[in-house]
Design a protein around this nucleic acid. Structure first.
Ligand SMILES: [Mn+2]
Ligand SMILES: [Mn+2]
Ligand SMILES: [Zn+2]
Ligand SMILES: [Zn+2]
Lengths: 129, 129
DNA sequence: TGACGTATTGCAACAAAGTTGCGTTTACTA
DNA sequence: TAGTAAACGCAACTTTGTTGCAATACGTCA
């Protein structure tokens, strides 16, 4: 997947993408860093750059959250990223709701053009409920 | 409105809420600080605390954005905050779409409980389109 | 297989946004 | 109007992410 982009297949890119593909949810830069602790260490700046590159190449996407921390998830689901996210208000876990439900039919002000939709459902996860 | 909460009506709380009520959109801590420059200055830490207090008391709400900067808007619309936001991907302006459209009918994993919905529609505003 | 040029990395320093601790001031109460 | 707790101002700190630059490693081509 990394090589198919035409850019260099570095060990950082491969390891981070593999890790995110294995993980089935959106995780933070910090969590990724921890899981990478075995093996040759990856500088945190490099990790930021790897994640930015993976996002640009659409191999990964960012999930926004009101704790000001980005979360990243592999785009196993290849096509347009139009699904919703669930965020637990107690343990702050974020999962992807792989449901084509995320749509917006309502009106926009005149002249506004829609590009993308981001739906976050907040609540309690099973463990916290 | 401030006094009705039972807590103290300080000049900071009153000035910031008045400012946000006048403004018809979500603005940042930084923008609020600028608009407050006339009159007795308000320390930025105090402003953070005022905004936190206003949020707790539901006189204001936070709007999340992927630039990692919170925006605040007065809750003129009193009831539950269930509407959508529009964010221009070019000029980063955020507006509230006062439309009861923000709902989620899709399924959640077993045991999950829904509390609140946050829908962000991204695109270009009239000025940027 | 080995040398080469450039994309990528690691490090140190920086920046923005928000938080914490603590002594001083202010708003409410009596 | 005095007493008191809540709120404020300031300085220092934390977290999250960014920038500049010299060192290194990836992919290519001899
Ligand atoms: Mn997702
Ligand atoms: Mn709103
Ligand atoms: Zn939870
Ligand atoms: Zn715009």
């Amino acid at each position: 997947m990394v090589r198919r982009t035409g850019d260099r297949a570095t060990s950082g890119r491969v390891r981070v993408l593999a890790l995110l593909l294995a993980e089935q949810r959106a995780i933070t830069h910090h969590e990724i860093e921890e899981r990478l602790s075995g093996g040759r260490r990856l500088d945190r700046v490099t990790l930021y750059r790897v994640l930015e590159w993976l996002s640009e190449k659409c191999l990964v996407h960012r999930v926004v959250n009101d704790d000001r921390v980005w979360r990243f998830r592999a785009n196993a689901h290849s096509d347009t990223h139009q699904h919703a996210h669930f965020k637990c208000t107690r343990c702050t876990t974020v999962i992807c709701l792989d449901d084509p439900q995320a749509a917006y039919d309502g009106p926009l002000p005149a002249g506004y053009r829609l590009q993308e939709i981001e739906l976050t459902v907040k609540g309690l996860c099973a463990a916290c409920a």
